[in-house]
């Protein structure tokens, strides 16, 4: 009575076929990542050394290390964070906690989504106009970082807003009903419980910012500048641009040098992502509701 019929067999075959199909797609998804990493490690690994990390490029960039570019990337990312995190987190708090649900708020949300969709080269040109020329920062770390900040603002806003909204409404009601103001509610309950999500957003921003090339090309990153920047109004080298330059602009660069730069860059990004995952796991382990 309960034995499988022809229909059951057919259903089972279909079910297996789809499972296999989806599995295959997933495999295809991770294949490029594995190939890229393998190639980079194999070809760029030999280039890695203390000297590579801590010396300036030499001999027309066909020898030497990447130190100025490494330091430059850290500068760019740090200044971009300083600019975008306060603005991004504050506006996310406004949108999630204070903004009434009306057409204006929806317009702002739409603008944020669109900001995330603007091509990075357009951001670059905007940066040239707004920061380099109009604000008069010239080609500098400040101009380049602000351009990066504008570009990655949506990441911070969306990540922060989502982690704020993930805090159960019951907690807010509980606070309001004890006579807490909105700000007391946010400060004492909402933020402590959404900090892991916010940090994740910030770290994702770091990894995205450190890899961007177009936005910094015209706004403050130099092709070759063997000195370390002394302040935010200096120009600087950056890893991403350095890689682009080595690959396309300079003849006779030894292959392992290019791969070495790419490896360091992707290593930084992956380390940041790993850090963000670690944060998440740690902070999620602490909160229970």
């Amino acid at each position: 009575m309960f034995a499988a019929t022809a229909l059951d067999h057919r259903n089972r075959r279909t079910q297996r076929a789809f499972k296999a199909l989806f599995g295959l797609m997933t495999l295809m998804l991770i294949t490029p990542v594995i190939i890229i990493l393998t190639v980079l490690v194999v070809k760029g690994g030999p280039a890695l050394s203390m000297e590579f990390l801590f010396s300036a490029p030499s001999n027309g960039m066909t020898a030497g290390g990447i130190f100025p570019a490494l330091v430059g990337t850290v500068w760019l990312v740090a200044v971009a964070l300083l600019a975008s995190v306060p603005v991004g987190v504050a506006s996310a708090i406004y949108l999630a906690e204070y903004a009434p649900d009306n057409w204006f708020t929806r317009l702002i949300n739409l603008a944020i989504i669109n900001l995330a969709g603007v091509p990075s080269i357009v951001h670059a040109l905007f940066g040239v106009g707004a920061f380099v020329l109009f604000a008069g920062f010239g080609e500098s770390i400040l101009a380049a970082s602000l351009t990066l900040a504008v570009m990655t603002l949506p990441v911070v806003i969306v990540a922060t807003r989502e982690s704020l909204q993930a805090v159960p409404k019951a907690f807010r009601e509980a606070c309001w009903n004890m006579g807490a103001t909105r700000w007391q509610t946010i400060w004492k309950v909402v933020l402590p419980n959404s900090i892991s999500g916010i940090l994740t957003g910030v770290i994702l921003e770091v990894s995205r910012t450190s890899g961007e090339t177009a936005p910094i090309m015209f706004t403050g990153a130099a092709l070759f500048l063997p000195f370390l920047p002394q302040g935010v109004l200096d120009q600087t080298m950056a890893l991403s641009l350095h890689l682009f330059v080595l690959s396309t602009q300079v003849p006779n660069v030894p292959e392992h040098l290019e791969y070495g730069v790419a490896l360091v860059l992707i290593g930084m990004v992956l380390a940041m992502n790993a850090l963000s995952i670690g944060f998440r796991v740690y902070l999620r382990g602490r909160k229970k509701w």
């Binding site: 159960p168 019951a170 907690f171 009601e173 509980a174 309001w176 004890m178 006579g179 309950v189 909160k287």
Partner: peptide
């Protein structure tokens, strides 16, 4: 001031909603 009022008039909900503290 709603905050003053709510201090004087407490509320208990359907689902217990202790804070995650």
């Amino acid at each position: 001031e709603p905050a003053r009022l709510r201090k004087e008039v407490g509320m208990v909900f359907q689902r217990p909603n202790p804070l995650p503290l």
